[in-house]
């Protein structure tokens, strides 16, 4: 019979680096990233799956890290906002587009929007505006700066396509 545990050892690849840790089983993935690993770029807003601020990528898929236990991430690959910029600190094309379009005001919701947008654009390289809005519908910006966010994602789509074309 499967063992009943209060703590568990996990191994997770976080932003390309393999991390081993022992966690209390009730720790959410969000709390583990923030408190266990010091990756405080993942923000916690509502902690019950409504605001989207804590969105990270687990095996490439955008998920709410407050609605997942750290132990459930054992053996997966997790990407957080800290994993977006390049090795020299150069911003990811989605981050660059957010910067240029002023797609953030207070910035609290931004990591969640960025991760949602990155996953969305990987699957939908040529999105139209309604599909961008649908993709972002699970992220709340209380400064209500949605218009520049949508514009930034549309622009980022073009930026991400450009190198692929240059390479082709």
């Amino acid at each position: 019979m499967a063992e009943l545990l209060e703590r568990k050892r996990i191994t997770v690849r976080v932003n390309g680096r393999e991390v081993e840790d022992e966690v209390e089983v009730r720790t959410t993935l969000a709390d583990w990233l923030r408190e266990g690993l010091g990756l405080t770029g993942t923000h916690l807003g509502c902690e019950h799956g409504v605001c989207g601020a804590c969105t990270v990528l687990v095996d490439g898929q955008a998920v709410r890290s407050c609605l997942m236990l750290a132990v459930q991430a054992d053996g997966t690959e997790v990407r957080t906002v800290e994993g977006l910029a390049g090795p020299e600190g150069q911003l990811h094309p989605v981050q660059q587009a957010f910067l240029e379009h002023h797609a953030l005001q207070c910035g609290f919701c931004t990591p969640g929007f960025l991760m949602t947008a990155v996953a969305f654009l990987e699957e939908n390289p040529e999105p139209d505006e309604p599909s961008i809005r649908e993709a972002l519908s699970g992220n709340i910006c209380r400064c209500t700066g949605y218009q520049p966010i949508v514009e930034a994602v549309a622009d980022a789509a073009g930026r991400l396509r450009a190198p692929a074309r240059a390479a082709g």
Partner: peptide
């Protein structure tokens, strides 16, 4: 945070 539980 979730309350304490045992996990399997």
């Amino acid at each position: 945070k979730p309350p304490r539980f045992a996990y399997a």
